[in-house]
């Protein structure tokens, strides 16, 4: 492809407004959010850290006199037989979910950019899954995937497929919750990527058309590079949100059977809240491990952003 497009692509967002002059104004714009962050996140974050570094029993949780125990809770967590599988499931769950959500979301976003009859309405309807309280959408999925009376197995039986124990077999449970999670994540990816596509002005496409680019070339050489900032943030946010998912899995399988669909997030929840006798310390420790994993990817993102 020749010059028209490349110049246009390159000039966009490459230079920046001179730094020094903007400093004070910049902080003025940022001040509300910084105050807000300090006011509302500092305490919960501190609390989660504190929970993970003390030996809590229900009694000391209420009385507030839990002894400091250093990294004992983390040691407990690492040596627990659930740790290995939970970490593996977290990785599989997150990566597979994101890959499919992003690919499907992007394909749909591109598909919906051309204006055909009903396109706006259909696009809006794609968001309906997001409007449902999770307890309802997750329950609906477990309804459909029920081994004996579920619609999915019924449909498969028409094609002669034997009963699949979607939620109750250790071989399928993780797959089932991933499918449901992809479904829930598609609207998120679709909306952000669609808006991102809308931000790419038509003149670039016109220029590309002048250069004689085909639709496919146009996508890879123009759309995809220009969509990069939005794609990266979508992936990063998708990662953060997917790592955190516990309610969907909890409602569908409780992390079972036998930990087959337990991720770090569901494990953390089970430790702190899923039992008659809560174990807040180890629960918070697992939660903090998740934060560290997300931080790692956050660092990657920021380095990427710097380079651009």
């Amino acid at each position: 492809m020749t010059s028209h497009v490349e110049t246009l692509v390159r000039t966009r967002g490459s230079s920046r407004v001179r730094r020094a002059r903007g400093q004070w104004a910049a902080w003025a714009f940022l001040a509300p959010v910084i105050i807000y962050l300090v006011a509302f996140y500092a305490y919960p974050l501190y609390r989660n850290l504190d929970l993970s570094l003390r030996h809590y029993t229900v009694r000391s949780f209420v009385q507030g006199d839990a002894p400091f125990s250093g990294v004992d809770n983390y040691k407990t967590v690492f040596s627990d037989p659930t740790f290995g599988p939970a970490l593996l499931h977290t990785m599989v769950f997150t990566l597979v979910s994101i890959a499919f959500q992003f690919a499907i979301g992007l394909a749909l976003a591109v598909f919906f950019t051309s204006h055909f009859k009903l396109s706006a309405t259909l696009r809006a309807l794609f968001l309906v899954p997001w409007l449902l309280p999770l307890i309802v959408s997750a329950s609906t999925w477990s309804w459909m995937l029920n081994s004996d009376s579920g619609i999915v197995n019924y449909a498969l039986s028409i094609f002669g497929v034997d009963q699949i124990n979607w939620l109750t077999s250790p071989d399928w449970a993780l797959t089932s919750v991933i499918i449901a999670n992809i479904w829930i994540g598609i609207p998120f990816n679709l909306v952000i990527l669609y808006s991102g596509l809308q931000g790419i002005p038509n003149d670039i496409y016109e220029a590309a058309a002048l250069d004689g680019a085909t639709g496919w070339q146009r996508f890879w050489r123009v759309t995809f590079p220009l969509l990069r900032p939005v794609s990266l943030i979508t992936l990063l946010l998708g990662l953060v949100y997917t790592l955190k998912v516990f309610d969907l899995i909890w409602i569908m399988t409780k992390g079972g059977p036998t930990d087959a669909s337990t991720t770090l997030a569901t494990w953390s929840y089970r430790l702190s809240f899923g039992n008659l006798l809560p174990e807040f310390g180890p629960g918070a420790a697992v939660g903090n491990l998740l934060i560290i994993i997300a931080l790692f990817f956050g660092l990657l993102y920021i380095r990427r952003q710097r380079r651009d």
Binding site: V58, T168, S169, P170, G256, P257, T258, L276, L277
Partner: peptide, 23 residues
């Protein structure tokens, strides 16, 4: 008393494992 929750959780783990055929 509070020993019960520590027994109940492994117990449900056991019947889940046996019924799903993992053990």
């Amino acid at each position: 008393g509070t020993k019960y929750p520590k027994i109940s959780q492994p117990m449900w783990g056991a019947f889940q494992a046996a019924l799903s055929g993992s053990k």
